[in-house]
C-alpha cells in the first residue's frame, strides 16, 4: 500500500490544465484561420456561428433523419439478432452446422456492403436503416448465440431437479446469463451503427448529417465540415454514455458481485 496524494488538490489542477489546453488550442486555431489559412482550417468562431445558425432551424431535419435511421435500424437489428441468436444457440444441431459459417461471416466488415443496399433500395432512409439493422443484427446474433451456447448445464439441471419448468428455467437462469452477452453486444454495436449510418449517408442521401457533410465537401465549405464533425462527436459521446448507463443498470447484479 503506497500513499496517494490528497486527491482533491490533484483533481482541481487537472481541470485547470484541461481548460487552459482547450482555450490554447481554440486560440491557436483561430489565429491560424485568421492568418489566411481559413480555406483549409476555418476558425472556431465561424464554426460556432454556423452551428448557432443551424440550431435556428435547418439542422433538425438532418439530425432527425440520421437519428431515425440509427435508432430504427438498431432496434430492428437488435431484436432480430437476439431472437435468432436464442433460437440457434439453444438448438445444438443448428448451432454446430452453422458455427463456422457464422464465424466466417463475422469476419466480414458488413458496413462496406453499403453501396449494395443503396443500389437495391435507393437514396432514402430505407437503405441506411437496413444497413444499420444488418450490422447490428450480426453483432447481437453472434453475441446472443455465444451466450446461449455457454449456459452452464449444471445450473440448468439443478433447476430441473428442483422442479422448475422450461419457462422458469428460462427466466431465472438463461435470461440473466445471456443478458451479459447481449448488453456487451449492444455496447459494441452502438458505435458500429453510427458508422453505418454515416457511411450510408456519405454515399447517397437526401437528408441527414452525412448529407450536410457531403454538401459541405462539394462546396469546399470547411466551416460546415468541422461543424458537422463536432455535432457527430457530440452524438457519439451521448450514445456511448447512454450505452454505458444501460449496461450499469442491467448488470447491476454483476457489478455488485465484483
Amino acid at each position: 500500500m503506497i500513499d496517494r496524494r490528497e486527491p482533491a488538490q490533484a483533481r482541481d489542477s487537472v481541470v485547470v490544465w484541461q481548460l487552459a489546453l482547450g482555450v490554447a488550442l481554440l486560440a491557436a486555431w483561430e489565429a491560424l484561420g485568421r492568418s489566411g489559412g481559413e480555406r483549409w482550417v476555418s476558425e472556431p468562431s465561424l464554426i460556432a456561428v454556423k452551428i448557432w445558425t443551424w440550431l435556428g432551424g435547418s439542422l433538425y431535419v438532418h439530425l432527425w433523419a440520421t437519428v431515425a435511421e440509427l435508432v430504427v435500424g438498431f432496434v430492428i437489428g437488435t431484436s432480430l439478432g437476439i431472437l435468432a441468436g436464442m433460437i440457434v444457440g439453444r438448438s445444438p444441431g443448428l448451432a454446430t452446422i452453422l458455427r463456422p459459417i457464422i464465424v466466417g461471416l463475422y469476419s466480414v466488415p458488413l458496413v462496406s456492403l453499403a453501396p449494395l443496399f443503396i443500389m437495391f433500395l435507393g437514396w432514402g432512409l430505407l437503405p441506411k436503416i437496413v444497413l444499420v439493422a444488418i450490422v447490428t443484427f450480426f453483432l447481437l446474433f453472434f453475441n446472443t448465440f455465444t451466450g446461449a451456447e455457454r449456459i452452464d448445464r449444471d445450473l440448468v439441471e439443478s433447476m430441473e431437479i428442483m422442479g422448475a419448468n422450461r419457462r422458469e428455467i428460462f427466466r431465472k437462469v438463461v435470461a440473466p446469463a445471456i443478458s451479459v452477452w447481449i448488453v456487451g453486444g449492444m455496447k459494441i454495436a452502438v458505435p458500429y451503427a453510427l458508422v453505418a449510418t454515416v457511411t450510408g449517408e456519405l454515399l447517397a442521401t437526401r437528408a441527414g448529417l452525412g448529407y450536410l457533410l457531403s454538401q459541405a465537401t462539394e462546396q469546399f465549405d470547411m466551416t460546415s465540415i468541422y461543424a458537422v464533425l463536432l455535432i457527430l462527436m457530440v452524438i457519439g459521446l451521448l450514445l456511448s454514455e447512454a450505452a454505458a448507463r444501460i449496461e450499469r443498470r442491467v448488470l447491476r447484479w454483476r457489478h455488485a458481485a465484483e
Binding site: Q18, L21, V198, L213, M222, I225, V228, L229, L232
Partner: peptide
Amino acid sequence: RVLSPFLTGFYALPKIALAPLFIIL
C-alpha cells in the same frame, strides 16, 4: 489525465466522417 477528455471526444467520433475532410486536405 489532462488529455483524457479530448481523447475520449475523438474516440467517439465515427472516423469515417473524417474521410471527406482528409480528401480535401
